[in-house]
Design a protein around this nucleic acid. Structure first.
Lengths: 207, 207, 207, 207
DNA sequence: AATGAATGAGCCTTCATTCAT
DNA sequence: GATGAATGAAGGCTCATTCAT
């Protein structure tokens, strides 16, 4: 808490905190519904009932059902990106960096199964605004990742490949595995194959 | 044409051909709509208008909107599987087999962009019947592929890995690349990176 | 019934007639509701209940509540214009023409009280399409009226005035009277004052 | 300022002035919204946003949306009536009186376009209380006007006509003209035709 | 086989109003 | 007096599906 914050009137802080709590509970309820039934088959009433709030309150804070889906998605992506970046940055060399990407994706997905499932959704009809915000967030993340890896490519420790192939080569397999695991398609545990996928990823991009 | 067919009255055969043509035009219209707007946001009226047929006719042939989506999906999967199997079977060894999987997936997707996009859909509301039919088709395909690859694993030319990791390791990267390419996320051409992904796939599973 | 019409298949004609009847009954029900409660305070359910049809049917034929209000208004204006033109054209000279306008407006309004009330509505939020259709209908009517009166102005039997003043001068008083009478603001009978208003109108525009 | 007022504490007077200013700004904002979109299609939030005040404040001062619409209408009618009466009373004879009615209506409407537009609204949802207050105001105005004109009728300078015909005959044309002009239906300027309408009005009611 | 009017449950959303702070 | 989050009844509308012709 900064001094600037503490100068706010009590009332204002209480209201803001209440608002944040209310929004959190709505997002939590929505996430559960979306993962269980899909966005299209989730009704506003179901979210509202599970969040224990009124319809009006829901619209007051999010504007629309789409607005909830968007905010949830953006928050999820940002949380995931932050987790991945944290791991990458603590890596000491390119190989550790690639292992960090695969491992962190795996760990975050198993630690946040519902949100991970939700981020695998396709066909969310984002508003133009949300779409551009999403692109912006993605660009920021990609830039950070590339800034971290670029020196290794320049030093010849990693292959120089078309830019758009790195993500599929490194993350494609683990993503596909996690997607299937989240859908219940197969029984294996991500933990057990994490190293295998990390090694394959490194072998695909090492010099 | 079998003798049984030729014994049918002329009129009947003309009717059958007309029926097939009508169904084809509906499936084509539906595919366009589904890819453009998503299944949930496509209405029966939109399909009907684009197929230039009546609502009644549509229900006469497919029973429901879900029925159209299912038939289209099943047909697409079977077509894709057939294309992949054809290529795999013409391969002479494990490495060629892996190259065939990656290459054929890439070729079929670029040659059938709309259908490929549609097969990337998630969360389709399949009926129990369609779901089991789909599983059946998938099992049949997987069995054929495994029958083809098994000898190479046994002979030690390919690694023995948990069964559920082969698909992600071999197809994960190209699938991810194609998915992004179909969404217009990046400009590169699949043709140019096909070999790269095939080599990465082989390097991930070779002994 | 023209030969062209009688060549239509029975089925088609029956369906068309049924459709027309259904639409008529909806328009009738809507008119009653609109006049009683105003457009904004009339609900789709009220119209549907009074018309004894389903909500879906209502939307099938009119697209929206606004669509009903528009079609009703356009039909009313056209009916009124036709009645006025019929009377004007049967007049023998300019004075009779002015009397015809005032008299026919008065007669039509007392003979079609609900529709007349509805046409006095303001602030109907017409769609752009309806607005332009309405303008078109109005132009056509005004043109016909002017074509009829123009010779008398040229011959010097009527005053040459700014075009936009003729309608207020001739129809303003009777319209205002009828509007108040329809609202129940006063007791007098239009029939009794018809001549008075017609004479005032003529005296305002005669040479 | 009466002694009673000056005995109030300073603070109170400042508060009253602030209150008045706040109410004025709300009424101004509401008028703009009502004229632009109609009363029914104006929301409390739109008024509140344009008046730059809180919802609570708005309800504190006016009680309801209807309350705002009513206060605005009543104030407008009174302002208009006062302007007309002022002109009538400064007239020297019946003909000047009629010219005063037409001219003042024209002048006030062009000088207060938004308010004039608003007074042309139909179907405002007045409360019983507002309705009776409105009737009362109207009666008061009509009585004053009749008191002024009655002597001229008695003296035979004006025609004796059914009471409910005077307003339509005198004000009908100019009202209709102004209504169309306010709606943007035609380009002419009221100023230029004022005399024409006044003469027609006089000619309709003079003996 | 084809047609398209009819159906109505159920959805998302609006918005005037209240009230605790 | 001011604030704005909360409320929830009510409304317009969608759309897959049926069925008489």
């Amino acid at each position: 808490m900064t001094p600037a914050d503490s100068s706010k009137p009590q009332e204002s802080r209480g209201r803001e905190a209440a608002t944040r709590a209310r929004k959190e509970s709505v997002l939590k309820a929505a996430l559960e519904c979306f993962v269980e039934k899909g966005i299209e088959h989730t009704t506003i009433h179901q979210i509202q009932a599970r969040a224990n709030c009124s319809i009006g309150s829901l619209y007051h804070h999010f504007g629309s059902k789409e607005g909830i889906a968007e905010e949830l998605f953006l928050e999820g992506v940002q949380q995931q990106n932050a987790a991945l970046l944290r791991e990458i940055r603590s890596a000491g060399n390119a190989e550790e960096g690639v292992h960090a990407v695969v491992g962190a994706y795996c760990d975050w997905s198993t630690g946040n199964r519902q949100l991970a499932s939700y981020l695998h959704s396709r066909d969310i009809d984002f508003s133009g605004q949300a779409r551009s915000r999403l692109r912006e967030i993605h660009q920021l993340y990609i830039r950070e990742v590339f800034i971290w890896f670029a020196p290794f490519v320049e030093r010849g420790e990693m292959r120089a490949l078309p830019l758009e192939t790195y993500v599929p080569l490194i993350s494609g397999p683990i993503q596909e595995y996690i997607r299937r695991w989240l859908s219940g398609h197969h029984p294996g545990s991500p933990e057990e194959v994490k190293a295998l996928f990390a090694e394959a990823a490194w072998s695909a991009v090492k010099a």
